[in-house]
Design a protein around this nucleic acid. Sequence first.
DNA 1: TCCCAACCTTACACCAACTGTAAGTGGTGT
DNA 2: ACACCACTTACAGTTGGTGTAAGGTTGGGA
Lengths: 225, 225
Amino acid sequence: MKKVAVVEDEVYMREELCSILNKAGYAAFEVTTFENATEQLIALSPDLVILDLNLPETSGFQICRDFKRKTSIPILVLTSRDQMADELQALRLGADEYLTKPCRKERLLARIANTLKRYEGRTNLLEGKGFLLDRTTYTLYINNTSVVLPRNQGKLLEALLSAGEHLVTSEQLCIALWDTAEFIDENALHVNLTRLKKTMANLGMKQQVVTVRGLGYRLETENAP
Amino acid sequence: MKKVAVVEDEVYMREELCSILNKAGYAAFEVTTFENATEQLIALSPDLVILDLNLPETSGFQICRDFKRKTSIPILVLTSRDQMADELQALRLGADEYLTKPCRKERLLARIANTLKRYEGRTNLLEGKGFLLDRTTYTLYINNTSVVLPRNQGKLLEALLSAGEHLVTSEQLCIALWDTAEFIDENALHVNLTRLKKTMANLGMKQQVVTVRGLGYRLETENAP
DNA sequence: TCCCAACCTTACACCAACTGTAAGTGGTGT
DNA sequence: ACACCACTTACAGTTGGTGTAAGGTTGGGA
């Protein structure tokens, strides 16, 4: 059953929403304190967030941006603010839908279902500069096409990618590959790195693996020519 | 530059839209005859389609369904029909956005940008009941996880899926597998089908392969228990 | 009821792709 | 110039996908 988080300060509205969601077969969770709403949401890790914009103590916009920066969970903004500027702002900050109150429950449910559908399978995607990586299958999406990376190359790219563009030591990479660093096989690691570099180059990826002599490796974004 | 197709019968509206799109940095393409609109769209393969519902000779709903069955390109419905029933119907048939005319261009552009962003990397996904299939790599997305199908199983599932739930003959499946039906190897086909059935069962998929004796195969959706 | 064709299952052997090994090359700092 | 680290390449073992073939089931017509 899909989890939906409801971030709304007005009690009656919140309960009404939860009731609708539960009847429609979702598991609804209420967020009732807002100063650390983003952390609460991350801890809850729902499949979708319904977010009001007018909140006490903080702004819905703020939550929207913070949450989207850390997750790829969809956000549906449901608000009484009907100014276009608000809508544009919310969409720009990463909201996936923007509905204004009052909103009939059929429309709300249809939009929720629609949004969830489009996020199907998107849960395990890691985001790189100009590409996406599925951490489960190591399918790489780039330039409107996709390739399945060999397992080792996938693991390496995942390890590098989840470090942002920070340095990753050989040891960490060994653990990523073989779940142990006891008997580090530097050679095998280098071979696998070479292979990854080659396939990334062949795909024309914007990010490339850079070695930091004596320390480890990191991803680096190519400068525009 | 992203390609946007405009399916709209009213000349003034169409040109206006294209002008807005071009100014915003998209490459706009007009569709002006509608009886084979789906084929035209497929041939064009834009990054997004703007679709009117009231068209001569055919229905926007029809186009929406047909197009979504064959591609995973996003559709933004832009129509003067403001009845909720129309909106629900469009969303159910696979539309990604539903805007009613008149619509300010800022809102339209914001929604377009938003939709395109969320479709990044998803261009080759075929949609099944409760799962998605990447036609390039045969990565299967189901239940918040993903698996890469062996190539033959992927080809078979792709062939079955793109026929909706209609019948597919052995001959068609052979062509899908080996690009020829000259020397049909019924046996090898059956073995591959068995394998596909087994992996689908193991994944607990809602759709399953049903054989129609003497005619061929088709996908069937399991009834709820 | 029996029979035959269509279909399914299973096991096995071939083949392609990925992986680690190992030997040899390049390049960087002292 | 040397030592050390990093890279490249080739090769062989392993794994997993595929077609083949043989035997088992199913279903509809005589």
